[in-house]
Design a protein around this nucleic acid. Sequence first.
RNA 1: GGGCCGCUAGCUCAAUGGUAGAGCAAUGGCCUUUUAAGCCAUUGGUUGUGGGUUCGAGCCCCACGCGGCUCACCA
Length: 538
Amino acid sequence: MSSSPQSPPSTNTSSEEAQVLLRREKAQALRERGLAPFGNGLAVPDTTGDVRRAHGSQSPEELAAETRTYAIAGRVIELRRMGKLAFLRLYDRDGDLQVMVRKDAVGPAFDLIVESLLDRGDIVRAAGRPIRTKTGELSLEATELSVLTKALRPLPEKWHGLADVELRYRRRYVDLFTTPGVRDVFLKRARMIRAIRGFLDGRGYVEVETPTLHEQAGGAAARPFSTHHNALDLDLNLRIATELHLKRLVVGGLERVYEIGRIFRNEGIDRRHNPEFTSIELYQAHATYLDLMELTEALFKALALYVTDQTTVTYQGTAIDFLPPYPRVSMVGAVGQHYAEALGFAPPARDDASGWLDLLAAHRDEIHRDLLTQAGAKKEMGLTEAEAMNPRSLGELIAVAFELYGEPQLDPTRPTFVVDFPLEVSPLARKRDADERLVDRFELYVAGMELANAFSELNDPDDQRARFRAQVEAAKKGDEEAMPYDEDFIRALEHGMPPTAGEGIGIDRLCMVFTDAASIRDVILFPLLRPEEKTSGG
RNA sequence: GGGCCGCUAGCUCAAUGGUAGAGCAAUGGCCUUUUAAGCCAUUGGUUGUGGGUUCGAGCCCCACGCGGCUCACCA
């Protein structure tokens, strides 16, 4: 174009600001020649994958005989220009494909290349015949080429991409098409969730959606987020679990229900925790927690096969075998055995959960003292000096002791069911018939993470009322995670809930295991981050 | 919240307390078979922010911000 011979005062072409300005000018140049830089309505009937699948195995000679043409579109992730020839790599939902643009073949559209109106990052449509280049790569030889969307911002460096994890999370839209493997993680996540739905739907489950806005956030031990509804002038909490609504639905006759949904817990953030996360909770009438163990084993094996084609999944360098049956570890037994060895107690005559529980009950004070000497455990129990005089329940001591001594002992190469939970840490679970100090509950641990929590549900309304009261008492004593008393839930139980077992599974952690993600933020598209500091003033 | 580490050009990274650099990207030029294309040239910086020490600070000290790991809490 007839630019002035004098270069403009600012010759800066490298700063982001300058690059954006230049790309805006290019967008304007496109407009001036009747090409819409943000157009719409051009048909894109094919994908890069269509071309690959149809012609990927054809020889150059066979391809030369092909008459069929394709029209594909995607982001330009590579751009190599050399005079009257250019190669682009287009990236679409189906993968990527090289497009060869020859001046002779594409005609006037080659101006886009010559005048550099086309940049890396633009969304481009190309139509033409499949060919094989001199180096043998399947490509589309463009006879049509147009810019569908002009990208105004430059792409990150092409070889390293975005390496700064903070930038990757904040600009996931760039990360997704820039960082290898990122898109696959989220495609895999979507496939896993679909597989879970298929698995449960095939077993007669109904998927439902229950409220996320709760007057009282119950169903789990956690602190909620609070919010407010203006029209009703109503203080509300974001849900911390779907449990109590789903059990109401079982009362209502939906004997097999599940919900996949977002849960919000006002807790810290680390590699395994994001304040909002996705859970699936499922409830099955006329089942026990033992039935859910089998269901869990079948589900996890199916997922492993579905996602990786194998029953063994490597997570962070450790091969985990998902072939059932999974080992079971008694929480009470593991803690009992630890103390029998560490403090020299004689093992119980009965080598079962009740026997070990008897032993632990007999040595409760010594165990309490031991936990108090563990600085971490002391903090974990939230004990102040005064509270140390008023020890918590045996069940809570056992749960803490298991975290301390039991969890590290679990076999890292196997998913493991932890069973024999104390009643006091399970306010919604049914008492065990054989020993009412225990509940019929399991947690599934994989790679040191708690992936699932399940139990035979408490359906005795009077017992549930007593459990809620105990929670209220705990809250009075300062337990900020104690459950509120839910009168309507009691009423529902009074209408009669069939014998039921229920389970919750952390979808994000499940995805971590099956995508080998070290951090939960790698399987959440937009993990919660602090807002970026405003650069202007403070 | 505690501890450790990081923050330098659009991106990826260098730089004994002594003139802030490279590669990629960008801009101009050459090039009809490239694969992170190549060659020549050019441009690009309030070194996260604010203080302090010093003749002199990207570097040392303090505070703060954001992030990562870790401990704690939870799923």
